[in-house]
């Protein structure tokens, strides 16, 4: 079984045109049947390599000139078509670009203005003076005079006085005089 496997490997390596690995080479030296297989394969390879001259055909002596003629003709055709392509491609590109520019211009000119405020904005910006810079921040406390009275305090005092007068009027009109005096005095004394 092992010899059969090794024989298969010998034939595989010979068919693959590879040298036998050392371990297989040693096995061939040890085993006569493997050595015979190796010889048989080497003989087959040598006979295949010693192939008889094939009944070959000699190509026409004009084959080379025909090939070169074809190549030259192709080169000439390429050169002849090249100038046309050289002019056609840029012309098409320029025409396309011009058409695109005209289309964009037509679209831009035909569109409705988005709004007067938007459209006037540049004009307004042109006539609006530049804003004056803000004065440098100054401490408010430094500008208040010493005898300054808060007008809100005076206003509150007058409101309170009016309310007091209204209460006294209502009390004198609808309550007995003693109780009025007493009730009106109680909060102030308390």
């Amino acid at each position: 079984m092992k010899t059969a496997l090794l024989r298969f490997l010998v034939r595989w390596y010979q068919a693959s045109d590879q040298n036998l690995p050392p371990w297989l080479d040693r096995a061939c030296q040890r085993t006569p049947s493997l050595a015979a297989t190796l010889q048989e394969e080497a003989l087959l390879s040598s006979r295949l390599r010693a192939h008889p001259r094939q009944a070959d055909i000699a190509p026409s002596p004009f084959l080379k000139s025909k090939v070169l003629h074809t190549l030259t003709r192709e080169a000439v055709d390429r050169d002849e078509t090249a100038p046309a392509a050289r002019w056609t491609m840029p012309s098409a590109a320029v025409a396309g670009a011009l058409a695109l520019v005209l289309l964009l211009a037509a679209v831009w000119l035909s569109r409705e203005p988005a709004g007067s405020g938007v459209s006037d904005r540049p004009a307004l910006a042109a006539v609006t003076p530049h804003p004056t810079p803000l004065p440098a921040p100054v401490s408010v406390a430094q500008q208040i005079p010493q005898n300054w009275a808060n007008p809100l305090d005076a206003e509150m005092a007058s409101v309170v006085a009016d309310a007091d007068r209204a209460v006294r009027f209502l009390a004198s009109a609808f309550l007995p005089s003693e109780s009025v005096e007493r009730r009106l005095r109680r909060p102030t004394s308390g």
């Binding site: 094939q54 070959d56 055909i57 000699a58 190509p59 084959l63 080379k64 025909k66 090939v67």
Partner: peptide, 28 residues
């Protein structure tokens, strides 16, 4: 290169076509 390989190539193709004229045309 054509000069060098045309003979071998023509024979290689001839093994398929088995026709001399076809082999030369296909070699070209």
């Amino acid at each position: 290169l054509v000069e060098e390989h045309q003979h071998k190539l023509c024979n290689f193709i001839h093994r398929y076509t088995r026709n001399r004229q076809d082999a030369e045309d296909l070699t070209q």
